[in-house]
């Protein structure tokens, strides 16, 4: 009596189907994303070439061996440039959502079991991996050059702290990627981040307490740059932490806001 209706073919029966664990997050996808990013020439320039060039340009100044906290000026410049390179890389990884939306890939992904959280997690891991690469090459360049000096513990701690700080700019990249249609996101992020780097005390030291310094202390790179150098300088002012937390909050909220409204066919 239960066979009065024609049964569906078994494989089409919803009861036989399972939902993927972790919202569809998996290593295959992450691997393909990474390979894809590393094939991109612009990414390679941002990640590997640009930060090293900056470090060699800024780190070769005369007072390179002056003591700064637990190291010297060359170490300070190296940490700053590694941070800048990682931030740029993470932002460009985040901004890839702009391209993905423009090509309809985001929409395609919404027709799969992949959850938005798993998607974000993948992008964050991608940004971290590329950031680590940028930090790695600058540090290797530093070792090869021989001028930066700090003890191994400080060295490693600075690198790890810098990596965590780059997540702020991965979030910024995603935010801008959603705000700006098509492939122009990096055209805005590139010069924008350079400006923030000048204002954020990354490239040239700004005299503390000056008007410029007060303005700078409100810009998005100021706080995270201070934090990433804090192990080296032995100094972590409260306003730097406040700045970093506030901008992280703004960028994450902005990215989440744009993403939740992303219903349009692009």
């Amino acid at each position: 009596m239960t066979t009065s209706t024609a049964p569906l073919p078994d494989s089409f029966d919803p009861d036989t189907r399972r939902v993927p664990p972790l919202g569809g997050f998996n290593a295959t996808m992450l691997g393909i994303e990474l390979r894809r990013t590393l094939r991109n020439r612009r990414t390679i320039i941002f990640t590997l070439v640009f930060p090293i060039a900056l470090f060699l340009a800024f780190g070769g100044q005369e007072e390179w061996n002056t003591t700064v906290g637990r190291g010297n000026v060359a170490a300070y410049v190296m940490v700053s440039m590694a941070f800048y390179g990682a931030a740029l890389t993470a932002a460009s990884a985040g901004a890839m959502v702009a391209v993905e939306r423009a090509q309809g890939w985001s929409r395609q992904l919404r027709l799969t079991p992949l959850s938005p959280t798993a998607y974000i997690l993948t992008k964050a891991l991608l940004a971290l991996t590329l950031g680590a690469l940028a930090i790695g090459v600058v540090n290797i360049a530093g070792v090869a050059q021989g001028r930066p000096s700090m003890d191994v513990g400080t060295w490693i701690a600075s690198a790890v702290l810098t990596l965590i700080c780059t997540l702020v700019f991965a979030a910024l990249g995603v935010f801008v990627g959603y705000l700006v249609p098509s492939e122009n996101a990096m055209q805005i992020l590139g010069p924008g981040l350079a400006l923030f780097a000048f204002l954020g005390n990354v490239f040239i030291p700004i005299t503390q307490g000056s008007l410029m310094w007060h303005i700078a202390s409100f810009t998005p790179m100021f706080g995270v740059a201070e934090i990433s150098r804090s192990v080296l300088t032995g100094d972590l002012p409260w306003y730097a932490v406040l700045n970093a937390v506030a901008w992280l909050g703004i960028f994450v909220a902005g990215a989440a806001w744009r993403m939740s409204r992303d219903t349009a066919r692009v």
Binding site: R17, R18, V19, P20, G24, N26, T28, M29, I32, R35, R36, R39, N40, E100, Q103, G104, W105, R107, Q108, L109, T112, P113, L114
Partner: peptide, 22 residues
């Protein structure tokens, strides 16, 4: 639309396949 231009054909299929259980 719905395709990423800088992936290969095989990568596109493998990527999509990785998101499903079966």
């Amino acid at each position: 639309g719905g395709l990423l231009k800088d992936l290969t054909v095989r990568e596109t299929v493998a990527y999509t396949a990785s998101l499903f259980v079966d």
